[in-house]
């Protein structure tokens, strides 16, 4: 969708032809820096920046960091929704800052930006992702096969590929896992992201490690802790049907057990 200027007449007198309309937006950012005078306490900090209709939350954060407060800390790499570095809680919902346009999160009111929940904060918007990746590693996110290596590619029919297509889209941004209320409790739950990535291999016709992976997820803290609240599906910036994937893993376990 393109940004449309609604009332060109009320704007500043005679905007130049081709000029991009701009507006002021306030960001309320949850900041934490144990080395600052605030110590172990996290505080709300407000910044007002001038932004354009095409700007994303990440652009506003950049503007703050580059022009107002260089100590503001956040992660981003590609800045185009592929690397999954800049998942954060924007107006109470987990999103990628680089995929969220300012005009879509109501710039009339201050936009709150917080680190994702359930993982220990390192500084400002940067969290320790190690617990998240620990459970990702546990489900063995690699192809497991037996027998001789083929001399060419492992071929697969389009239908077989379609079976797990949805879960191949994961970029490991942790938006789903850190939106899950069960994960918030004590962080022991494997979390949606780990299960999604297990799903990607369990339903891959070329993979032979499904039994092992199902065994791993048949844990007290595995798929059975999912309460189907759909927070993960709503949070996923890639549009993966996360809850559905978790239910498919559950079903595979039940058909295996009975």
């Amino acid at each position: 969708m393109t940004a449309v200027l609604e009332n060109p007449a009320t704007e500043s007198p005679k905007p130049e032809v081709g000029a991009i309309p701009s507006f002021d937006v306030t960001l309320r950012i949850r900041r934490y820096n144990p080395e600052s005078e605030h110590g172990e306490e996290s505080i709300w900090d407000e910044f007002t920046v001038t932004a354009h209709g095409t700007d994303r939350v990440l652009d506003a954060l950049h503007k703050i960091k580059w022009e107002q407060d260089g100590s503001l800390t956040f992660r981003r790499s590609c800045a185009h929704g592929v690397c999954g570095s800049d998942a954060m809680r924007i107006n109470g919902r987990n999103r990628l800052a680089c995929k969220t346009l300012l005009k879509d999160v109501n710039p009339d009111k201050p936009i709150t930006v917080e680190p994702i929940k359930g993982l220990p904060v390192v500084k400002d918007l940067v969290v320790d992702m190690e617990p998240f990746f620990a459970s990702y590693r546990e489900i063995m996110p690699f192809l497991i096969t037996s027998g001789n290596e083929p001399t060419r590619e492992r071929l697969q029919s389009a239908e077989d590929r379609e079976r797990f297509d949805d879960t191949t889209k994961c970029i490991l941004c942790a938006a789903c896992t850190s939106s899950c209320p069960v994960f918030w409790t004590d962080g022991q739950y494997f979390g949606p992201a780990a299960i999604v990535n297990a799903h990607r291999f369990i339903f891959d016709s070329r993979d032979e490690g499904a039994t092992q992976r199902l065994e791993i997820l048949n844990d007290k803290e595995g798929v059975w802790r999912c309460r189907t609240t759909f927070n993960c599906t709503e949070a996923c910036p890639r549009g993966i049907e996360v809850t559905k994937a978790i239910q498919e893993v559950k079903r595979a376990m039940i058909t295996r057990a009975f």
């Binding site: 617990p131 620990a134 022991q188 048949n218 844990d219 007290k220 059975w224 376990m253 039940i254 009975f258």
Partner: peptide, 18 residues
């Protein structure tokens, strides 16, 4: 290292779910 608890695998949660 991040201290993740010992695995608690088993079919108990599966049976309880069913």
């Amino acid at each position: 290292p991040y201290a993740r608890r010992k695995t608690t695998r088993g079919n108990f949660e599966l049976y309880s779910w069913v």
